[in-house]
Amino acid sequence: MITTDFVPGSPCWLDLGSRDIPATAAFYSTVFDWEFKPFGDEAGDYGLFRTDGKTVAGVGPLTEEGARPAWMIYFRTTDARATAQAAEQAGGTVRVAPTDAGEYGSMAQLTDPQGGQFAVWQPGETEGGFEHADAPGSLCWTELYTTDAAGAKEFYGALFGWTTSDMPLPGGGGTYFLLTPAGQGEERMHGGLMELSSDDLSLNGGKPYWHPVFATADCDATVARVTAGGGSVQMGPEDAEGVGRLAVCLDPAGADFVVLTPVEDAKG
C-alpha cells in the first residue's frame, strides 16, 4: 500500500517528462480528471497534476538528450548525496547529480546496474511529495520490468534495504517479487519487479524500466478514455487473480502506465 506517510525507500513522488506539456496535460486530464497547475517559465514549464485539491504528480519538459517520454518514480531518502554515492558503489550510475531545490529538498536521478532509471528525493524544510495515493486517480503501486531480477533485488536491497517476497505467476509465468520498505510490514508493500527478456522490453529499447500503476474505480471506462484521448493499450483490460482488473497503457507520446481497479473495487 502506498501512502503519504513517507518512510526511507518508499515512493514519494513521480513526474512525467514530456515534449508537449499542454498536450500531455490535456490527455491526463481526460483520463483521470486531473487538473493541471503550471508553475510558469521560472520553473522551466514544470507543473503539477492535482485531483480534489491534492497533488498527485508532476510534469515537465524532457531534459536528457535522447530520452523517451516516460514516468519517473522518486523514492524517499534521508541523504540524496549518500544514496547517489551508494548507487555508484553498487554498480549503478548517476544521471543527474544531487541537486538542491532550496527549502523543498534535494534530488538525484539514478540508473540501476541493469539500466532501470529512477530518482531519489530528500525532503527539506517542507515534507514534499504527492498528497494523494492509493485511491482512484492516484499512484497505488510501482513496478520494475528488468532483465535480471536477482541483480535488481540485490541492488535495491543494498540501496534502500527493501525486503522482497515471492509470488508465483499463474500458468507458470515465472515469479513476481513484491517490494516492501526496510523495517515495514506487508501493509506498506509498495511495488514489485519481474524478469523479462530484452525482447519483451522493446518499448525502452530492450532496457529495464519502472512504471507507475494508477488506481481507478472502473478499469474499462478508464481504458476507453485512454483510447479516446489518443493513447493506446498494450495489454488488457484483464482480470488478475487476487489483484484486480488492469490494463497496460501508453499515452499519445508513448509513456507507459498501468490502470488498476483493485480486487475489492472490481468485485463491487
Rank of each mutant, 00 (worst) to 15 (best):
G92N: 04
A108R: 02
V59C: 10
G60N: 02
Q117C: 00
T126H: 03
A25N: 09
E131V: 14
S106Y: 01
A26C: 05
A67E: 12
D33H: 03
L110C: 13
P113Q: 06
V59Y: 05
A67N: 13
Q89M: 14
G44F: 03
V31D: 11
P69Q: 06
T93L: 15
Y104M: 13
P136H: 14
V120Q: 13
P98N: 12
G124A: 13
Q114K: 12
R81Q: 12
D100E: 15
D100G: 15
E127D: 15
P113L: 05
G92Q: 02
P38W: 14
A80M: 11
A84N: 01
W71A: 01
E127I: 15
A97V: 05
A90Q: 10
Q117L: 01
S138K: 11
T77E: 05
H132D: 10
Y28K: 01
E64I: 01
F49E: 09
W121T: 05
R81A: 12
G60W: 05
G115I: 05
D20W: 05
G102S: 00
G66T: 01
V96H: 07
A135G: 12
A90H: 08
G105T: 13
A84C: 01
A67G: 14
G102D: 00
D100Q: 08
E64S: 01
T30Q: 14
G47M: 04
E131T: 13
G137T: 13
T126D: 04
F39K: 10
T111L: 04
R68E: 10
G124Y: 02
L62C: 04
A67W: 09
P38D: 14
W34L: 02
G105R: 11
R68T: 13
I73V: 01
A43E: 11
G92P: 03
L62Y: 00
A43I: 07
G53T: 02
Y74D: 02
V56C: 10
E35H: 10
F39C: 03
E127M: 15
R81G: 08
T83I: 03
A90I: 03
R19Y: 11
P98L: 08
T111I: 08
A133L: 12
P38A: 13
L110Q: 08
A80I: 04
R95W: 06
E65V: 00
Y104I: 11
Q122T: 11
P123L: 06
A119I: 05
A43R: 13
R68K: 15
P61L: 06
P98D: 09
Y104R: 13
T51W: 09
Q114R: 14
D112F: 12
F75P: 05
A70S: 14
P136I: 14
G116W: 01
L16W: 03
W34S: 04
M107T: 14
F49A: 11
T24L: 08
E88H: 08
G92Y: 06
R68M: 04
A86H: 07
A87H: 09
S18R: 05
T63F: 03
T111F: 01
A86F: 03
Q109G: 10
R76K: 07
W121G: 04
T30S: 14
A86P: 07
P69F: 06
D41R: 08
E125G: 10
G91L: 04
F118T: 00
Q89C: 13
R81F: 07
L48Y: 11
A87E: 10
A82G: 04
Y28C: 02
R68P: 05
F32D: 00
P22K: 08
E42V: 11
A70T: 10
G44S: 12
